[in-house]
């Protein structure tokens, strides 16, 4: 074992770690039958290790090295061109009951947000500092609360906000998802605590598939991933009462996506 737990772990915890890992190793000495799969080619690729090949780590296929199918032509489509991706994203978001606003410019985006604030009588709106958001803030006809100012984020003040405006890491056409992070989208609370979430994004941030999105996020942040990355797919919802869909369970009841470009 090269990776000892951090010093905070008690000696008892360290021994439970050893006990569990020993049980696992003992259990895995008997190889499992190959996975149940329809495609026999994949099964052959995934043969369990034999006694002559005890190195289970390197010999194993993982999902990312499955036969050349970068686009995973079996998952839902992610769109081949930027136009297709934009159309797919818009369609998926609308099916999820998010509201999409197409804007030609940052100015136009500003007036869309200001109109939202006016028509819904927002008293207080939270935002964070981002090149896409800063130009919109002066146009807001209400009190504004910055979450990443010198005083830091105050959860009581954030709770009292009608809406939160954030940027995002990227958008996923395949699923209609918006990826926000604690680093680039104003922390953890901004996109979840206010009753309405407004996302401001540029069309160049649209990716085809979830796989592409995860790959790009890893590349962007390198070894230092944000402490939270969240794929938001539509406004908060629940079906817990008689399996009937209700929007706005605990998170935002409304999700507005402002697409610039």
């Amino acid at each position: 074992m090269t990776d000892e737990p951090a010093t905070t772990a008690s000696p008892a915890a360290r021994s439970s770690r050893a006990v569990i890992l020993a049980r696992i190793r003992e259990a895995l000495r008997v190889p499992a039958p190959p996975p149940h799969m329809l495609d026999r080619q994949l099964v052959t690729a995934a043969e369990p290790p034999t006694a002559s090949q005890p190195d289970r780590g390197s010999g194993f296929p993982t999902l990312s090295v499955l036969p050349a199918e970068a686009g995973r032509p079996w998952l839902p489509d992610g769109g081949a061109t930027p136009e297709e991706r934009l159309a797919l994203l818009t369609d998926n978001l609308e099916k999820l009951r998010a509201v999409v606003h197409r804007c030609g410019s940052a100015d136009e985006a500003g007036s869309v947000v200001a109109e939202l604030a006016r028509s819904n009588s927002w008293q207080r709106v939270a935002f964070h500092h981002d090149p896409l958001i800063e130009p919109l803030v002066p146009q807001l006809p209400c009190e504004v609360v910055e979450v990443d100012g010198a005083d830091g984020s105050d959860k009581h003040r954030l709770e009292a906000c009608d809406a939160g405006i954030s940027s995002c890491e990227l958008l996923v056409a395949q699923t209609g998802s918006i990826l926000v992070s604690s680093r680039l989208s104003g922390g953890r609370g901004l996109s979840i605590l206010p009753h309405v979430h407004v996302v401001v994004a540029h069309t160049s941030q649209i990716f085809g598939t979830l796989g592409d999105a995860l790959e790009a996020t890893k590349a962007r942040h390198g070894g230092q991933l944000p402490s939270m990355l969240s794929f938001i797919t539509g406004p908060s919802r629940t079906g817990d009462i008689e399996r009937i869909l209700v929007l706005g369970a605990h998170g935002p009841k409304e999700l507005h996506v402002i697409l610039i470009g």
Binding site: P76, T175, S227, M228, L229, T233, R237
Partner: peptide, 15 residues
């Protein structure tokens, strides 16, 4: 559902 509403990845406390 196409995706569950929130799929969130956490790696540690506030950075």
């Amino acid at each position: 559902q196409p995706m569950t509403c929130y799929n969130t990845l956490y790696s540690g406390p506030r950075r």
